[in-house]
Simulated scan of single mutants.
Amino acid sequence: MSVINIVGLSFFGISELFGQHLGYSKFWNVSIKKKKNEFTLSSRTGMLILYAPAAVAAAASFFLPGAVVGLRAQLVSLALAIHFFKRVFEVLFIHKYSGRMQLLSTIIISSSYTINTINIIYTQHLSQSQSIREPAIDLKYPGILLSIIGILGNFYHHLLLANLRGKDEKGYKIPSGGLFGLVICPHYLFEIIVFFGLSLIAQTAYAFCFTAGTVVYLMGRSLATRRWYVSKFEDQFPREIKALVPFVF
Rank of each mutant, 00 (worst) to 15 (best):
L9H: 04
L9N: 07
F11W: 12
I14R: 01
E16Y: 02
F18T: 06
F18S: 09
G19I: 06
Q20A: 13
H21V: 02
L22Q: 00
Y24M: 14
Y24P: 05
S25V: 07
K26H: 11
K26G: 12
W28Q: 08
I32H: 13
K35H: 14
K36R: 15
T40L: 03
L41R: 09
S42A: 13
S43Y: 05
S43C: 11
G46I: 00
M47C: 04
Y51P: 05
A52P: 09
P53A: 03
V56A: 12
V56S: 07
A57D: 02
A58C: 11
F62K: 10
F62C: 04
F63Q: 00
L64E: 06
P65Y: 03
V68S: 02
V69W: 03
G70H: 09
L71E: 13
L71A: 13
L71M: 05
A73T: 01
Q74R: 14
Q74I: 01
S77K: 01
L78A: 15
A79Q: 14
L80F: 09
A81N: 07
I82L: 15
I82M: 14
H83F: 07
H83W: 10
H83E: 09
F85T: 14
K86P: 00
V88G: 04
L92H: 07
Y97G: 11
G99T: 08
G99V: 10
Q102W: 11
L103G: 04
T106I: 08
T106C: 08
T106D: 00
I108D: 11
I108H: 06
I109G: 02
S110G: 12
Y113Q: 00
Y113S: 10
T117P: 03
N119V: 13
N119G: 01
I120S: 03
I121H: 07
T123R: 03
Q124M: 13
H125M: 13
H125A: 12
H125Y: 15
S127C: 06
Q130I: 04
Q130W: 08
E134Y: 12
I137K: 09
L139V: 01
Y141T: 11
P142L: 05
I144F: 11
L145Q: 06
L146Q: 01
L146H: 03
S147G: 15
S147R: 04
I148H: 12
I149F: 15
F155R: 06
Y156M: 13
H157M: 05
H157F: 09
L160S: 13
A162H: 09
N163V: 13
L164H: 02
R165G: 04
G166P: 14
K170Q: 13
Y172F: 14
S176H: 14
G178E: 05
L179I: 08
F180K: 00
V183K: 02
I184K: 07
Y188M: 05
L189K: 02
V194M: 10
S199E: 04
I201G: 11
A202Q: 01
A202E: 03
Q203G: 03
A205N: 08
A207R: 03
A207W: 02
A207I: 06
F210E: 00
T211C: 15
A212K: 10
A212R: 02
L218R: 08
G220V: 01
A224V: 01
A224S: 09
A224W: 10
R227L: 04
W228N: 01
Y229V: 00
V230Q: 15
F233T: 09
Q236M: 09
A243L: 00
A243P: 07
L244T: 09
V245G: 05
P246N: 01
V248Y: 12
V248M: 06
